[in-house]
Amino acid sequence: MSLYIVATPIGNLDDITLRAIETLKTVDLIAAEDTRYSGLLLQHLGIKAKLFALHDHNEQEKSQLLIEKLKSGQSIALISDAGTPLINDPGFHLVKACRENQIKVIPIPGACAAITALSVAGLPSDKFSYEGFLPAKSKARQDCLSKLIDETRTMIFYESTHRLLDTLNDMQTIFGSDKQIVLAKELTKTWETIVSYRVNELITWLKEDPNRQKGEFVLIVEGHTKNDSDIDPNALNTLKLLLKELPLKKAAAITAEIYGLKKNLLYQLGLSMEN
């Protein structure tokens, strides 16, 4: 009585793990986002299994049925069209229901487009923010991007062919032309392409060849880099006031402790003030 969350390849079928194959062979039922698409993968793997459609439009309704099957002792694997289930794919309601019913949920890890792209982007990967797909309408999209202006973590977005240029134009509007973006297209597939440009350069590169705009895309966007102008004005004002009564080193240390800033940065700013 377990639900297995099974990652499947995002392109190259050889990326399926041995554990995933064994799990898909042994479970009683496989819940799939698109049974026709998943059927081709299972056929390639030589697996004959009973498929059950579980997608965005029926997940809440069908989850209870799957819970009842699990309670009866059946084992079920959940797969999406590609990659790791629940990452912009159905499955949340089912996993939540399993947790609420004390049904064991077992991850079978594997490919994920977001992490695959991040690993080769050359942008900071120690901290990152997964944003998924942005809204379809430009106004809503720009509103979402505006909330990320000060995000210091590397940001990961998914985007489709028909909205790619519109999204990049909105990113240029909100983030500025110099924002560094790594575009990863068709990962692990025949036409895999990974390029790194400033957003204005990336837009130009895509327009040079319409074929570059076709495919499935991951956008890895550099986070906001703080500079002196980002320092809390209250901290600068405190430093100025303390400099009237204290040596620079002491004033910088006190200000740093109050506002949680680096002493060296405040010391340099203090020097600029004195000059």
Score class of each variant (00 low, 15 high):
E100M: 05
N101K: 10
K104F: 05
K104V: 05
K104H: 13
K104R: 15
V105S: 10
I106P: 09
P109C: 07
G110I: 15
G110P: 12
A113G: 03
A114R: 02
I115G: 03
I115T: 14
T116S: 15
A117L: 03
S119T: 11
S119N: 10
S119E: 07
V120Y: 08
V120H: 10
V120I: 15
A121K: 04
A121S: 15
A121M: 01
L123S: 12
L123Q: 11
S125P: 11
S125M: 15
S125Y: 10
D126T: 10
D126N: 13
D126P: 02
K127S: 14
K127Y: 09
S129G: 01
Y130M: 14
Y130V: 15
E131Y: 08
G132H: 04
G132V: 02
F133K: 06
P135D: 01
P135A: 00
P135E: 00
A136G: 00
K137T: 07
K137E: 13
S138P: 00
K139F: 04
A140E: 15
A140H: 07
R141C: 04
R141H: 03
Q142R: 12
Q142K: 12
D143F: 06
C144W: 03
C144I: 00
L148W: 11
L148S: 07
E151Q: 12
E151C: 06
T152K: 14
T154A: 09
M155N: 08
I156D: 07
I156M: 04
F157R: 06
F157I: 01
Y158S: 01
Y158H: 04
E159T: 00
E159K: 00
E159I: 02
S160W: 05
H162S: 06
L165D: 09
L165S: 11
D166C: 12
D166N: 08
D166S: 13
D170R: 04
M171F: 05
Q172W: 01
Q172R: 12
Q172P: 00
